[in-house]
Structures are given as structure tokens and as C-alpha cells.
Design a protein around this nucleic acid. Structure first.
Lengths: 191, 191
DNA sequence: CGCGACGTTGATTTGCCTCAACGATTGTGG
DNA sequence: CCACAATCGTTGAGGCAAATCAACGTCGCG
């Protein structure tokens, strides 16, 4: 539970009692590599905090192609936000990319906590603001950068977890085919 | 001020005193068409509520090309979120696309209000969640749809304000050149 | 060992861009 | 109120970035 509270304490301070209030509602689960936590059509009822390992969120389009929307390594939160806040079936798949331990907080518990503990609402407000900023930056990058530059940016931004992600996954994230990413990288090696 | 409180009351209830608390911190301004409210390098200090008219947020890339990031018609909020929350210079330009009346809430007043009025923090938490969802959907669309389909989606989603937006602005939003959008539309007219 | 996923490379195709020219509209200053 | 400039939408010709399809070697894993 410590990792979780370290994460939260980046933005708000919690007393032991307040931590206890939260702890009581957290459920911990472990998963093996490539296990699905959520799939298209499911109603997403939890926010997932990644205690260890790495998850990814992706969609599958009408041609059957996967598109990575988000990677969630250790210390990140992930959910199908659309489904979570509307309680409608979502389109996101969430899957482990390695063995992982995850802590779940249900939306209803979360909303209960927001009332008991306005500070926690602040925490998630800030978290959501940060996520919004990074999504907006990604939209800007997609509109204004070449595939090369998008790859550059990706490597910088996700430097910490690059080792654990296959080229195919990166290609899907930056919006090119694996073949083309392979060529780009090959081209870059040459003088 | 009524439009603003109607907007807020979608998600939270406010007493007259609470409304008064907010009102005191709102500044109203009017702008003419094509006036810049914010430009790249500025530090964004306010959230803008659009009382009437329409605004757009865009970036300019290294080739000098504009990319529309967001349209904010009547009843929407807009800001350079990155700059607002980090207090660093942002990259967004914000401009009116028609004559407009805008109500400004400074970040510092906003944070003061979050402490006085936790309900308001809830309102902005929800607002930010919604913005996040729509940005994520846009990322998904950009990764999985053709230019044609992106145009389709745009027309559906922004049906209400289509009349007030030029083709050029739409092209910039969906990430194609004006010439290509023109051709797409022409192609669609034929049987 | 054998199978399936991955990365690579080649040949070809295509979706979209660039540049250029033109008429139509809008806006602006004299 | 008109002349002129600026912006917009349209159309054509040609070009390029990235996709597609296909074949092949490698590796990790059951």
C-alpha cells in the first residue's frame, strides 16, 4: 500500500486515519503477462493503480488493427475514462504487458471518498489535469510532427520503460506500421 | 452571469452566497472577431468561459502551419491547460473566430475558491474528466480513421457550430490541407 | 523440437501533400 | 461607394511519406 500513498502524497497530505479510509476500499490483484483486465464492451468500474509491472490501453479498429492509447508503467493510474464516468460500455482494452500487481479503486468507492475526503478529489482533479495536458500534447504532436519526430518524442518521454516495450507496440502508439518503424530506425543508424 | 451559473449548475448546486463568492472574482471582457487573447510564449493565467461567440485554440508548427486544437463555442471553457497548471510559457494561441464575450477566472482565484468551496473543485474535476474523454476520443480517431471518416465525425460532433467555421478551420482541426478537404467534399457530392 | 510472434527487407500502391493558377467573396481604406 | 487587397474555396499536375503485401531469418517459449 506504501507505493500508492507515496503516489498520492505528491499532491496532498493524508493522516493515518485518512489513509485507513482509503486502504479499506482498495483491492489488490496480480496478473500474468498479456492478461486482459478490461475489454471493449465492458463497463469500466475501477481505476487501476499499477503497483508493479506495466499495462497498456488500446483499441481495435474495424480492420482489426490495434492502436495503443496509453502505457501505464509502475506508479501510473489507468482506466477507460469514458466508460468509468458514463457507466456505458467502453471501447478500450486494458492488458498487462508484463507480470503486474494492480490496486483497484471502484468508482463508487471513489465517489464516496470524494465526499468524506475532499482532499482526495483534489488529488484526482490534479491527476486528471495532468492527463489532459499530456493527451493534448499528443494531439499536437500527431498534427504537427513527422513519424520520425513522433518516434523521437516517444523515446524521450517514455525513456524509462523503453526496454520493456516492443517495437510493434511503439509503432502502434505513434501511429505507423511496424514495417515502417523498422525502416525509420534502420535509416537512422546510417551516417 | 446567468449563463455561467447555468453552466456550473449542470454538475453542482450553488446557494446565492456561493454564487456571490464566485461572481466577485469573475471579470468579463468583449472581443472582436480574430482578436488574440493568448499567444505562444504567454503564461496563461485564466480559464475563459465563453458567454457568447466562439473561440479557437491552435498551435503554429515550425513550418508556420496552424493546427486547431480546440473550438470553444458559447457555453464552453477554454485555456492553455499546460501553461495554466505549470505557470510556464505555453504554446497555444487562443483567438476569437467571431465577436465574443468572455468571462475570466484567474488560476489563483480559482484555487482560492477550491478551498472555500470544495464543490467547485468537483465541478472542475468533472469538467476536466469530460475534456480528457473527448481528447482521448480524438486521439483514437486520429489513429484509426481515414481523413474522410474524421471529417464525418467532426461534422457530427460539432453540428451545432458548423455554420460558423470555415473549411480551412475544419481542415486544420482534422489534420488535412484545405485543398484535400475541398476535394473530399467534392468527391462526396457525386453519386 | 516446432510453432508463433517479432523484426527486417523488397516491390508496389495509395492517401494525402505541394505548388500553382483561377474565380468568388470579404473586408478595407480612400 | 468603389477599387483594391486579402482570404477563401476550387481544380490540376506532380511528388512523397507511409501503407500494403509478401517473403524470410530469428528468437523465445510450450
Amino acid at each position: 500500500m506504501e507505493a500508492l500513498f507515496n503516489n498520492i502524497s505528491r499532491y496532498i497530505q493524508l493522516t493515518d486515519e485518512e489513509q485507513e479510509l482509503i486502504s479499506r476500499r482498495i483491492v489488490e490483484k496480480t496478473f500474468r503477462r498479456k492478461q486482459l483486465l478490461l475489454q471493449e464492451g465492458d463497463i469500466c468500474k475501477h481505476s487501476y493503480f499499477v503497483k508493479s509491472g506495466c499495462l497498456r490501453g488500446y483499441t481495435i479498429d474495424k480492420d482489426g488493427t490495434e492502436h495503443n492509447i496509453v502505457f501505464a508503467p509502475q506508479g501510473w493510474w489507468i482506466a477507460d475514462m469514458y466508460s468509468l464516468i458514463t457507466a456505458q460500455p467502453g471501447q478500450l482494452f486494458i492488458e498487462t504487458t508484463s507480470n503486474a500487481t494492480v490496486q483497484l479503486l471502484s468508482r463508487s468507492d471513489q465517489e464516496e471518498l470524494f465526499i468524506l475526503l475532499p482532499k482526495l478529489e483534489r488529488f484526482f482533479r490534479i491527476l486528471t489535469e495532468n492527463a489532459l495536458v499530456s493527451n493534448q500534447q499528443r494531439i499536437i504532436d500527431n498534427l504537427s510532427l513527422s513519424a520520425q519526430d513522433r518516434y523521437q518524442r516517444f523515446c524521450e518521454r517514455y525513456a524509462g520503460i523503453l526496454e520493456h516495450i516492443s517495437q510493434k507496440q511503439i509503432a502502434s502508439y505513434i501511429g505507423v506500421t511496424p514495417e515502417f518503424l523498422s525502416r525509420m530506425i534502420a535509416r537512422k543508424e546510417e551516417p
